[in-house]
Simulated scan of single mutants.
Amino acid sequence: MEGLGPDAIAKILNDKGIPGPRGQAWRGTAIRGHRRRGSGILNNQMYIGRLVLNRLVCRKNPVSERRVSRLNSPEQHVVQDVPTLRIVSDTLWKKVKRRQAAPRQRNATAGPGLLHM
């Protein structure tokens, strides 16, 4: 699946009948995640043998009674190296990070008011 985007990968996994997170269908967001929050397969540092705790704090909004998560500052993160969890090489991890950064750089140079689909 090299070179494919998260949505294409999710479609392939679903077509093959591979269950996604929590037994539901795969979605591109489960793979892509959110870079700053460290979510999604492409951002989970556990795959490079690094466990990051205390990334988020969850609170309940007293008005809506919904849980709201906020990103803790990096100083509050608890990071522990666990080499036995590593399944991705540093080379591949860095390649993914470069590819993730590339669209953001292209969008930043495209100018204001343009939609990027």
Results as ranks from 00 to 15, higher is better:
Met1Thr: 13
Gly3Trp: 04
Gly3Asn: 14
Gly3Met: 08
Leu4Arg: 14
Gly5Glu: 06
Pro6Asn: 11
Asp7Thr: 11
Asp7Asn: 13
Ala8Asp: 13
Ala8Thr: 10
Ala10Ile: 04
Ala10Thr: 05
Ala10Arg: 05
Lys11Met: 02
Ile12Met: 08
Leu13Met: 15
Leu13Ile: 03
Asn14Gln: 06
Lys16His: 10
Lys16Ile: 00
Gly20Ser: 09
Pro21Val: 02
Arg22Ser: 14
Arg22Phe: 08
Arg22Lys: 15
Ala25Phe: 07
Ala25Gly: 10
Trp26Pro: 01
Arg27Gln: 11
Gly28His: 06
Thr29Lys: 15
Ala30Trp: 01
Ile31Arg: 00
Gly33Tyr: 01
His34Val: 00
His34Glu: 02
Arg36Ser: 08
Arg36Val: 04
Arg36His: 03
Arg36Lys: 12
Arg37Pro: 00
Gly38Phe: 01
Ser39Pro: 03
Gly40Trp: 01
Ile41Asp: 00
Ile41Ala: 03
Ile41Pro: 00
Leu42Tyr: 01
Asn43Cys: 03
Asn43Ser: 03
Asn44Pro: 04
Asn44Tyr: 05
Met46Ala: 15
Met46Cys: 09
Tyr47Gly: 00
Tyr47Val: 08
Tyr47Pro: 03
Ile48Gln: 07
Leu51Ala: 14
Val52His: 02
Leu53Arg: 14
Asn54Gln: 11
Asn54Phe: 02
Leu56Thr: 14
Leu56Gln: 15
Cys58Val: 14
Arg59Thr: 15
Arg59Asn: 13
Arg59Leu: 10
Lys60Asn: 03
Pro62Ser: 05
Val63Cys: 02
Val63Tyr: 08
Val63Leu: 14
Val63Lys: 15
Ser64Ala: 14
Ser64Asn: 15
Ser64Lys: 12
Arg66Asp: 12
Arg66Gln: 15
Arg66Ala: 13
Arg67Leu: 12
Val68Cys: 05
Ser69Met: 07
Ser69Ile: 02
Ser69Ala: 12
Arg70His: 14
Leu71Pro: 05
Leu71Gln: 15
Leu71His: 10
Asn72Cys: 05
Asn72Gly: 00
Asn72Trp: 02
Ser73Asn: 10
Pro74His: 06
Glu75Gln: 09
Glu75Met: 02
Glu75Arg: 09
Val78Thr: 15
Val79Leu: 08
Gln80His: 13
Asp81Cys: 06
Val82Phe: 13
Pro83Glu: 06
Thr84Ile: 05
Leu85Glu: 06
Ile87His: 05
Ile87Trp: 04
Ile87Cys: 09
Ile87Met: 08
Ile87Pro: 00
Ser89Trp: 04
Ser89Phe: 04
Asp90Ala: 09
Thr91Glu: 08
Thr91Val: 05
Leu92Ile: 08
Leu92Arg: 10
Leu92Gly: 00
Trp93Met: 06
Lys94Asp: 13
Lys94Ala: 09
Lys95Asn: 07
Val96Asn: 01
Lys97Asp: 12
Arg98Trp: 06
Arg98Glu: 11
Gln100Phe: 02
Gln100Tyr: 00
Gln100Lys: 03
Gln100Ser: 05
Ala101Ser: 13
Ala101Tyr: 01
Ala101Val: 01
Ala102His: 12
Pro103Gly: 04
Arg104Lys: 12
Arg104Asn: 08
Gln105Glu: 12
Arg106Glu: 07
Arg106His: 07
Asn107Ser: 10
Asn107Arg: 13
Asn107Glu: 14
Thr109Gly: 07
Thr109Leu: 15
Ala110Pro: 00
Gly111Trp: 07
Gly111Leu: 04
Pro112Asp: 12
Pro112Thr: 10
Pro112Ser: 14
Gly113Ala: 05
Leu114Cys: 09
Leu115Val: 14
His116Glu: 04
His116Gly: 05
Met117His: 12
Met117Asn: 11
